[in-house]
């Protein structure tokens, strides 16, 4: 088990394996995102309450899901880096932060556009919006910490502490719409047995969400490969790999 894991986490092997996967992941992500966009903008029926404006949902909801998923991914990688000193986990935590921040920014911006039309305000300090803004600052704080500490192994440990403390924010985001009276509407999909959404709207949303996920996988692997090259640039295998 440990032998399997250490082989999987070996940087040269990971670098080569990721290099083979990335083109496929880009292709699958592009296909899913295009199908989801056509489904969301053209095929899904108009919402009887919100009209065409609800189509923002097909961007907003997947990016909000990813904002939380990437945080959990980053915190999980940070925990493995902290406990077992796995280099690959340090690298994955470090490179996923900017992507998580991008998804969070997209969720906030599209939510703002949606709110501007539906609530007649770009921003309100309600529980859901504020806790997501805090998530955005957690990502920025993690990135700033990584940038400020020269020694990458120490930066990973410091970042791990911040990431793990910040995990407490995730359930707050999730339950904020139930615990507090907010302007933000409640979940429509998480009740999978009986989602309050018709299949015509649900399939573009799920396709889009899957597209976001595969896109994240591709983007995080590209960034991880760069990070590996930078850390190992004076090793023999990197020079062989690049000159090959």
């Amino acid at each position: 088990m440990i032998a399997f894991f250490s082989r999987w986490a070996s940087l040269p092997a990971f670098y080569r394996r990721a290099g083979r996967w990335i083109p496929w992941l880009w292709a699958v992500a592009a296909g899913l995102l295009m199908a989801g966009t056509v489904g969301g903008l053209v095929l899904a029926p108009v919402d009887y309450q919100q009209g065409e404006a609800y189509r923002i949902l097909f961007v907003h909801v997947p990016s909000a899901w990813m904002a939380m998923f990437v945080y959990m991914f980053m915190a999980g990688a940070s925990a493995s880096a902290f406990i077992w000193h796995v280099k690959l986990a340090e690298i994955l935590a470090r490179v996923s932060a900017p992507l998580g921040a991008a998804f969070t920014a997209l969720a906030l911006a599209t939510g703002s556009l949606w709110g501007a039309r539906m609530w007649n305000t770009w921003w309100v300090w309600d529980a859901r919006l504020t806790s997501v803004l805090l998530l955005f600052f957690l990502y920025l704080g993690f990135m700033a910490l990584q940038a400020a500490i020269e020694d990458r192994r120490r930066a990973a440990r410091a970042g791990a502490v911040l990431a793990l403390v910040g995990v407490v924010n995730i359930p707050i985001i999730h339950y904020s719409v139930e615990w507090w009276n907010t302007l933000h509407q409640g979940a429509t999909v998480s009740k999978f047995d009986n989602p309050s959404m018709t299949w015509d709207m649900l399939w573009p949303l799920l396709t889009m969400a899957l597209g976001f996920m595969v896109y994240f996988a591709a983007a995080v692997l590209v960034r991880a490969r760069s990070e590996i090259l930078e850390r190992e640039r004076h090793r023999r295998w990197v020079i062989d790999e690049v000159t090959r």
Partner: peptide
């Protein structure tokens, strides 16, 4: 987009 063009396309 039913009058919501800037919001939907902007997103």
């Amino acid at each position: 987009m039913g009058g919501y063009a800037p919001y939907v396309w902007g997103s």
